[in-house]
């Protein structure tokens, strides 16, 4: 499973929506994530990829879309 699929699996785990978001679609505007699903997703990303996301990187825009999440995660690996 590649990184994109692993991230998609996490989004679907914390989201109440079952549809597939487009890579550049805003996960917030499209309703996949709300304010409380976001910290859940960040925690799941840390566990899945074995990384610690520093507080300085806790900017919601970094996690706005699947493409942004993938870019950020791969920069931390």
């Amino acid at each position: 499973m590649d990184n994109k699929d692993r991230i998609l699996g996490i989004v679907r785990k914390v989201s109440t929506k079952t549809a597939l978001p487009a890579p550049d679609e805003s996960l917030f505007d499209s309703g996949f994530l709300d304010s409380f699903a976001l910290p859940d997703m960040v925690g799941e990303l840390e566990r899945e990829f074995g990384i610690k996301i520093p507080d300085s990187d806790l900017n919601p825009r970094k996690f706005e879309s699947l493409a942004r999440i993938q870019s950020y995660i791969e920069s931390r690996m």
Partner: peptide, 12 residues
């Protein structure tokens, strides 16, 4: 910025 506040509060 509710997303940022909740994200930081839920961890800090």
């Amino acid at each position: 910025n509710g997303r940022s506040v909740i994200l930081h509060a839920s961890r800090k």
